[in-house]
Amino acid sequence: MSVSASSAPTAATPPVLEARGVTKVFGGLTAVDGVDLEVGEREIVGLIGPNGAGKTTFFNCLTGMETPTSGRISYRGRTLSGKPHRVTESGLARTFQNIRLFPNMTALENVLVGRHCRTSQGVLSALGRGPRYRREEADGRARAHELLQFVGMDRHAETLARNLPYGDQRRLEIARALATDPGLLLLDEPTAGMNPQETASAMQLVRRIREQGLAIVVIEHDMRFIFSLCDRVAVLVQGQKLVEGTATEVQQDPRVVEAYLGKPVDGG
């Protein structure tokens, strides 16, 4: 539990997320190399970079699914414990690049699982089914329906996740993450595999999530999506943060162009 007041932009309230020097080494490969990232309240930060740049690995480090080789991560001033479920309890929630729903549970049940860490009824209470249990269960269901409605798929509440179309699966993953009442949402390629309409509505969805008071970090390869949505964009190349700035700054930075397209050939 350390509050790093020195580096915070405003000393009074620490940033939502503060990552300092996060490094992850796999054998001989440094997948993430000393990355710093700060996310403020209600901010949407984009994370871009070529394939294999280490974006997902960085998310894994943030959420405790990988133990960083070095570096420190704190959420609202509190250093995060390494265990994924503790991280989620603290207020970070994520989606996965290759959708990881619970395929044989219904959409509603998927979201209810997200409520797990915000509910507390144990075995005895589940067996006894007292009023407290029933109230919590009913509240949970109401909240789950609300979230399904929020992402626009309430009518699929009883469909098995495996039977949902691809776009709905992505939205369901977001609803499930929101069910953990996060303060910061990490989205790993939320529009991968979507058609332009779905992408547009996903963009709307992300904006609406921000309006609910959440901060968001989003990994995407779709530049239009990133540049029209994000307050700030960080570029990761070969594990290192190359550039960070507003959409225009990043777009105009020659190093970014080079990282994506290679060095311009003389006279070419």
Binding site: P84, R94, F96, R100, L101, M105, T180
Partner: peptide
């Protein structure tokens, strides 16, 4: 119940279950 759903979630995808805050 909440417990049963958590069990099934673990059976379905343990990593995702942990990411949803399940110990």
């Amino acid at each position: 119940s909440r417990i049963g759903r958590a069990w099934i979630a673990i059976r379905e995808d343990e990593t995702a279950a942990a990411a949803m805050g399940i110990n």
